[in-house]
Amino acid sequence: MGSPAGGSPFSSVLKRPMEPKPENYSTIHLRLTVESDRLSLFSSLLGQGFTLKVRTGCSVRELLCRQLGVRADYVDHRIQTIFLDGKTVDDVDTAVIRQESTLALSAAMPGLAGATLRRGGAYAAMRRQISHQNTAGHNSVADGVVMLKLFNLVALELGPGFLKQGVWIRGKHMENFFKKVPDYFWPGCRAAEIDGTPLTVEEIGRLEWRHRQVFLKLEVKESG
């Protein structure tokens, strides 16, 4: 158990292009320059989910470690609660990512429910009805899209890496984020561009996002 032994939870810099071509949506590219102490505010957004272009038909471990560059020890020790399409994953080597799967990642959780949902935990039998069934052996490797949700400590630790590379966010979640984000976010948001055109942070909050897919990319500056 425990947090990653210092440094980045990624074994390598993310190189995979994060821009799938969402079909049937109006798209918009939003680039924000934010101070580092505002990064945690994006945790709620990352918990709503973002989409990535990946190779599907692989195991959860292969996706996280080989494609997304997350350190193996981080996957083994830090990510203790995993849901694939809402089902609790016990074995990251046999649970297979499908086209348009939703993968949710969390640190270990408190409570009996938390212990019950923990992967391979002592109380896994107590939620067998929602346990993910092994799907190894039925793989069909292909280009595809997955939705990734990051919760709690995992969002704080993995989130910045994804946000710096850029992620696709549903417009209604982006709109909700700007509506609900605490006021102190805005002074720490130093610059903004939409589709390459600069605009003021005040203008961001007034835009209509709901019916779009937003490619959000952050540039992070030290606070102060």
Binding site: F83, A104, P110, G111, A113, L117, I130
Partner: peptide, 11 residues
């Protein structure tokens, strides 16, 4: 901390 996780579990 449980809200998101229990929600994802459909519980």
């Amino acid at each position: 901390i449980l809200t998101n996780v229990i929600n994802e579990a459909g519980a």
